[in-house]
């Protein structure tokens, strides 16, 4: 398992370029350890995805990777291939919990109220129990579940109705941010840059809703994304402008996937991944439209997890 493209001659060191929230630096004064990369089930795809977990706060961060073809870094007096830029940003853990709540509802326990620690269990991603350490879970769960309390223990059951309402609010606040950031959401220009110079050529609310729906859809299963589309009364767009580009044009759209471990950020599988991995609906739509400017759609952590149930 050679680490470097130049054959592991000892001088070769992988350098990962990260953008991390500044407050982690301040927290670091208080802690000697507590920042851990863990593999959890991606709430959209169900695949193993690397997240950063801050044990002290505690807080969960997702990692997105910006990659453009044919780029490299000069870092001081060294060169680093790939030119990857990693973003660690806080993620709403409810998306990850929702994955398990829906799964439990679909599987043998349909209609049953269950304690959370029996819902969030995963042989493939045992670190999912870390999610249970996150603060204010009870408050969060109210958005997506019906709950019962028996002998001071809480039992939960997935509620699609409440979840859609919650997701509707998520879409609203995402729309507001799109407007603030002057992201160009018009379908016409969707295949150009995600953020094209502050020019908003469309202020149609429907475009914003569709775009925000696309962004939120990266964190929920496909079926729920379709249900959300109906809930938002999004008209069926013409086939050619089917899905919003979201940030897929920029950031690698499969959230970080790891076959082995995340330090293989820049595996040689890079170029083959695209072929091998299943395309999401949005990717397929993008594949149909103008491909210029879409070259950064690459997975980065090698092939997807091999062992599927």
């Amino acid at each position: 398992m050679a680490r470097g493209a130049d054959g592991g001659d000892g001088a070769s060191v992988w350098q990962h370029v990260f953008l991390l929230p500044e407050y982690l630096k301040d927290d670091s004064k208080k802690m000697k350890s507590g920042l851990v990369f863990v593999k959890l089930a991606n709430p959209c795809s169900g695949e193993g995805t690397i997240y950063l977990f801050n044990m002290c706060l505690p807080q969960l961060f997702e990692i997105k990777v910006f990659k453009e073809k044919n780029h490299s870094w000069f870092i001081n007096e060294s060169v680093q291939s790939g030119g990857l830029l990693h973003f660690a940003t806080p993620v709403d853990p409810l998306f990850l919990l929702l994955h398990y709540l829906i799964k439990a509802d679909k599987e043998s326990f349909q209609g049953k109220f269950q304690p959370l620690d029996q819902v969030v269990m995963d042989d493939m991603f045992p670190d999912c129990i870390l999610l249970l350490k996150l603060p204010e879970l009870e408050k969060l769960l109210q958005h997506v579940t019906e709950e019962k309390e028996v002998d001071k223990k809480k039992y939960y059951k997935y509620s699609k109705e409440k979840t859609l309402k919650w997701l509707g609010k998520k879409v609203n606040q995402t729309m507001a941010a799109l407007k603030t950031n002057k992201v160009n959401v018009s379908a016409r220009v969707q295949s150009t840059a995600f953020f094209s110079g502050g020019q908003v050529s469309s202020d149609k609310d429907e475009d914003y809703v569709r775009y925000a729906h696309g962004l939120i859809s990266d964190y929920i299963p496909k079926q729920l994304s379709d249900d959300l589309s109906k809930y938002l009364k999004l008209p069926e767009p013409p086939a050619s402008v089917r899905n919003p580009p979201s940030k897929k044009a920029k950031l690698s759209d499969e959230p970080v996937m790891a076959k082995e471990d995340y330090t293989k950020f820049n595996s040689k599988d890079f170029k083959t991944v695209k072929k091998n991995s299943k395309m999401t609906a949005a990717q397929k739509a993008l594949a149909k439209v103008d491909k210029s400017g879409m070259k950064s759609i690459d997975s980065f952590f090698g092939t997807k997890h091999v062992k599927k149930k």
Partner: peptide, 19 residues
């Protein structure tokens, strides 16, 4: 495209903020 990517943190903040 890098410019778009650099606006990701502010968009992510909205997506993941509590409702």
């Amino acid at each position: 495209k890098l410019r778009g990517a650099l606006s990701w943190p502010s968009l992510a903040a909205a997506i993941h903020a509590q409702v």
